[in-house]
Design a binder for these strands. Structure first.
Length: 214
DNA sequence: CCATGATCATTA
DNA sequence: TAATGATCATGG
């Protein structure tokens, strides 16, 4: 099995800066939306391929190496602004109760992130362009991390005191607990699927990461 | 079946 | 435009 280190992945990805990701997706036989369906995750999938990952590492088991993320950027007054928040990892209520920030998946993913900025061209954007690839190494002593930890602890406390359903996307300065899941109705049971949540990086955090990487 | 990839829709 | 909640396709 081939090991792709972070620096190898970054070098691989950098070759594609400025390229149209849709063409690359087509070449790699990744479904985008041509089938009439809406695959929202295709950009992430193609980036994983381009990084050199032959198999899918969508979930870093436990040893984990690094995390690849992409975010859409939108141009406002000549500046690039993160259009969306960035999903970090799922929240497992039990785990969140029992886990310290620095032991959490959230931190483990955040600290070894490879961050891809993709230009967004509107709804159903079909020609996303890779504009930047950066990696980031957080330190446990960074002020930013301390504040993120504060958010994590806040959300954790709320979970413990008020329960999972009390969580909302309003919480947190840098990270938030948004709903995330398959959604809709389960065609088999015709019942609502359970609501799940995940940690998201707010746009200001995304912006911060983008700036820190210069 | 559910976690992961992330965007879409709606409201203010 | 920004913020929050809801949703979709895919792969293991």
């Amino acid at each position: 099995m081939k090991i792709i280190t972070r620096s190898v992945a970054i070098n691989n990805l950098k070759k594609y800066i400025g390229k149209n990701l849709r063409e690359l997706a087509l070449k790699n036989k990744i479904t985008t939306y041509e089938t009439g369906k809406q695959n929202k995750g295709w950009k992430g999938l193609i980036l994983e391929r381009l990084a050199g990952l032959e198999t899918n590492i969508s979930k870093a088991p436990n040893g984990l190496s690094w995390e690849l993320k992409s975010v859409s950027f939108y141009e406002v007054k000549g500046k690039l602004i993160p259009k969306e928040t960035m999903a970090i990892t799922m929240i497992n209520p039990k785990e969140l109760k029992e886990t310290e920030f620095f032991d959490s998946h959230c931190w483990n993913k955040l600290k070894a992130i490879i961050f891809c900025a993709v230009k967004w061209h509107g709804k159903n954007s079909n020609d996303g362009q890779l504009i930047k690839v950066v990696s980031l190494d957080f330190s446990e002593n960074d002020d930013l991390i301390k504040e993120i930890k504060t958010d994590y602890d806040f959300i954790r406390n709320k979970l413990i005191k008020k329960g999972f359903s009390a969580l909302t996307g309003k919480d947190g300065k840098w990270i938030q607990a948004r709903t995330k899941g398959t959604g809709g109705i389960n065609p088999k049971t015709e019942k609502r699927r359970p609501i799940t949540r995940a940690f998201y990086a707010r746009t200001i955090l995304v912006k911060k990461i983008f700036e820190l990487s210069k």
